[in-house]
Nucleic acid binder design. Structure first.
Lengths: 183, 183
DNA sequence: CTACTATATGCATCAAAGTGCATATAATCA
DNA sequence: TGATTATATGCACTTTGATGCATATAGTAG
């Protein structure tokens, strides 16, 4: 039920092809969602069957033909209805914590490797996000940011704040592990 | 493939019944995982079929009979193998952000209501977590915390740090929304 | 006496998500 | 000429998740 509303949201902002949608997950929307092309095409098919979206077949000479999808009026209605209803809280399942639950004095180095890897990856992602923020969302640029881009910026901010907290936690756990399980 | 390793992890720490496992999700492990009893029993059945767990049927007089599950040697091997392999990064999908992507000047109040609800719920959860920390994990209690409880505490810390960051972000977004879409 | 709660386990069905496989055009690279 | 990349779409299969239904014992609350 979720991907459905992601696609409706994106198509409401701007008509797109399935291919465009998939690429969107590789860039801006990728901060908080992703889906494989197979999932996207399947869901688009279902949405079209349910008449929530319509599409125009467009022939291209240099590239394969494509279908440009947009919301139908009942699609807009469905989206509006979804917006009006409160979200229910989502639980985030965390496999890293599951792994760490297995920590003991014999596998300490394994666990710390996993933590270090995680710290490393997180720092790289953090650097990437911060660079994007500096390059595209300076105080000056923010003042002239188009309205429909503001929540994309908010998504980036979410990524930045989450990673910061995650890194702080990782370092805390690394200390905790060392103190607890060193022989 | 995930619930499988959660169950193996929990059963490796201590043999349990399906019912015990479900209750674990309602308490400590609930910080970072949950599953319905139907899912748990099905997965336990699959694990038993695959000979990764074994169980003893135990008759009780005052309560219904139960099955106490524990890891088989191949279950332990499977768990160890999983621990040795790096986790792949998980993407957290965020429906709140999807909803906010739809923000515009006509639905501003709707969006702010959603944000306020989220702030309220998060503050309640935060208070709960902080209370648990104060009550069960004071500096004094931490010094005598059994080794196998340390990562449960880490899970709580993860919850606390995540919520703090989430709250900071929510308040940031609320300001951003106000600035952008007020008429 | 009836309802409800706690303990305890499970099946069946359907919706959603993930993965592998498949196809087609056109351009570029080696 | 053959390989790879970008564009573009989709089916089939499997796994996972969610929900409803079903059953059984025993204690407690009203």
């Amino acid at each position: 039920m979720s991907l459905k509303f992601v696609l409706l949201t994106l198509l409401d902002r701007e008509p797109r092809t399935g291919y465009d949608l998939v690429r969107t997950f590789d860039t801006a929307v990728g901060y908080f969602w992703n889906a494989s092309h197979q999932q996207v095409y399947r869901e688009l098919g279902a949405l079209a069957d349910a008449r929530l979206v319509k599409f125009k077949q467009i022939e291209q000479e240099d590239k394969p033909d494509k279908k440009v999808y947009s919301l139908s009026s009942s699609g807009q209605k469905a989206l509006r209805l979804w917006l009006e209803n409160p979200l229910k809280a989502q639980k985030n399942k965390d496999l890293l914590l599951v792994k760490l639950l297995n920590a003991n004095s014999t596998n300490l180095s394994l666990m710390r490797e996993e933590l270090q890897r995680n710290i490393h990856d997180s720092e790289i992602l953090q650097a990437t996000y911060l660079e994007i923020e500096q390059r595209f969302y300076s105080a000056r640029q923010l003042r002239s940011l188009p309205d429909n881009q503001v929540m994309i910026y908010a998504a980036l901010r979410k990524g930045i704040l989450s990673i910061e907290a995650h890194l702080a936690w990782l370092k805390e756990v690394d200390k905790l592990l060392g103190k607890t399980f060193k022989k």
